[in-house]
Write a protein that binds this DNA or RNA. Sequence first.
DNA 1: CGTCTTCTTGAGCCACTTCAAGGTAAGTGG
DNA 2: CCACTTACCTTGAAGTGGCTCAAGAAGACG
Lengths: 224, 224
Amino acid sequence: MNQLHPISRTHTHRPKLGVASDSALFGCPELHGVAMPFDRNVEIFGEGEPAEYVYKVLRGTVRTYKILGDGRRQIISFHLAGDTFGLDGEDEHSCSAEAIADSQILVVRRATLLKVAERDLEVAKSLWALTAAELKRSQEHGLLLIKSAQERLVAFLLAMAQRLSTKNEVDLPMSRQDIADYLGLTIETVSRTFTQLADSAIIQFLASRHIVLRNRALLSEMNA
Amino acid sequence: MNQLHPISRTHTHRPKLGVASDSALFGCPELHGVAMPFDRNVEIFGEGEPAEYVYKVLRGTVRTYKILGDGRRQIISFHLAGDTFGLDGEDEHSCSAEAIADSQILVVRRATLLKVAERDLEVAKSLWALTAAELKRSQEHGLLLIKSAQERLVAFLLAMAQRLSTKNEVDLPMSRQDIADYLGLTIETVSRTFTQLADSAIIQFLASRHIVLRNRALLSEMNA
DNA sequence: CGTCTTCTTGAGCCACTTCAAGGTAAGTGG
DNA sequence: CCACTTACCTTGAAGTGGCTCAAGAAGACG
């Protein structure tokens, strides 16, 4: 945990529209973060805790979420390799974060970051840009939640395919329950809708989490 | 439109949690914005347009929204007197904005703001803080959309009451259709749910948009 | 091989939508 | 001031998409 970790860019698959560049942040040698391992289902931070660090996924996947009074869970977003997270909330986190799979996370002290940002304009811009990108993502997530189950799942599949694959093949890192909690559906509806798409030969299952997009044009059309 | 306009704070009713202070932005004499009138239902900016200005509501109300391919409209947020908007998207707007009622809007060139932010740390911080506040709001809006119709409407009522009234009385500036598009419901469901709440003596109608919160404790409880 | 987790499938139900009609309020011109 | 128009809101009846409850299948792992 005290070991310095060079920033690997080999695993970063950002969408073309993912404007926010964080190179000024984590690329700055002065901001030597520390790479930490987090096992599957281990909490990285909790809602309401002081926001002491900013994080970047080096390997693995992270979910950020909120829990409602009656126990329902809403997943805010999935963070893949290359993604930055932890910029929610000014001084305390507005959501919780957990590793979905065994992950390697780069950790940087927020206070250090802010100090550097006061001198370095590029760092300040990056911090703002990352927050703005997250806002855009959040608004698009909101749009998802007014669509039908099928539309939600199609949009989800296309987004995931764009983020973590160049081919028409996706290897989802998250469970059906995670997908359900992200899309505001039940696990049963997610499963059934997947089956429907497979029956229509629009997608094909190599394994329950390993999916081939057989008709991407049609999928995109369904995503209108 | 060329007339300088002093910033009125008398009409600003921000919630206690509305952290982002914009005094550094619009309070700065150097950033003399221009007050412009916008009539009801007039567009202020459209999705995809270059984000040339940043706006602040002096009087009236504004809705920001997105339109889906099939015509469905999702309202992203309502901006009341004192609220800032237009910070969506880096260089082009990710949503459209319209005045809900006849409004007075303070308009500041984004480029000017960015230039000042390069020298003035407080302005830079304010810009970031406003974006962060909008992110938080957007995430909470996402939470709304997984709840039941009654829960959504209750949450909406409480939020509006907190934002634009000190008493247990709210005068909603928006139509039922606006509320429906904000909450992801149909106008009929919104109307029926309002009627149910009134029948349960939890709220009372003085006029269709003028509502008394008769049992705020119960409302808060329903909002868990 | 057995156990635990994850995923799928079925049957019935319910909250919300859809479609349709009527009521209410505000504005406009005569 | 009143008839007419238009926008907004409410209510009813029927339909349905997704949820709930329940059971079993398919993987993952020791």
